[in-house]
Amino acid sequence: MAEIEGTPLFTGSARGRLLVLDEPISFWGGVDHSNGTITDFRHPQHGETVTDRILAMPSGRGSSSSSSVFAELIRKGVAPNGVILGESDEILVLGAIVGELLYKRICPFLLVTPTDYAGLATGAMISIDNDRLLVERSG
């Protein structure tokens, strides 16, 4: 069991199976807000779902509408349980802030160092607890 410290961008607790994105994704135009499926056909994880996962993204990308799409995922209950970022991204975090404001559901965001980010692997069971990550078992 490994513990990693990070910087909380939106504080909270979450648990789920890790999905590490090989490339950043624009949630607008890249994720279907009705079911959480990755629809960007250029993306390596095309066809995967973000729902109920702990999603790890190297950084945000593209459209400023991604906040709205993220809030809509939260409203529909198909958002990730939590998000780990390698680089800070205000646009996505805003979606989580508004999701909590409107629907009282918390999707925490944690920023980790590039070294810690590089150690993350899809499939691991992960917990986010405010400023720390707990890798319960690897995939």
Binding site: L9, W28, H33, S34, S64, S65, S67, S68, V69, A71, E72, I74, R75, K76, S88, E90, V93, V98, G99, L102
Partner: peptide, 27 residues
């Protein structure tokens, strides 16, 4: 999030949130 210790006054804004992406936009 950005580590800013002060706020700045702005003279203009442009809103992207008026494009519909589901009920969360409206609410």
């Amino acid at each position: 999030m950005t580590g800013a210790t002060a706020l700045l006054d702005i003279s203009n804004a442009h809103i992207d949130g008026c494009l519909y992406h589901g009920m969360a936009s409206i609410e």
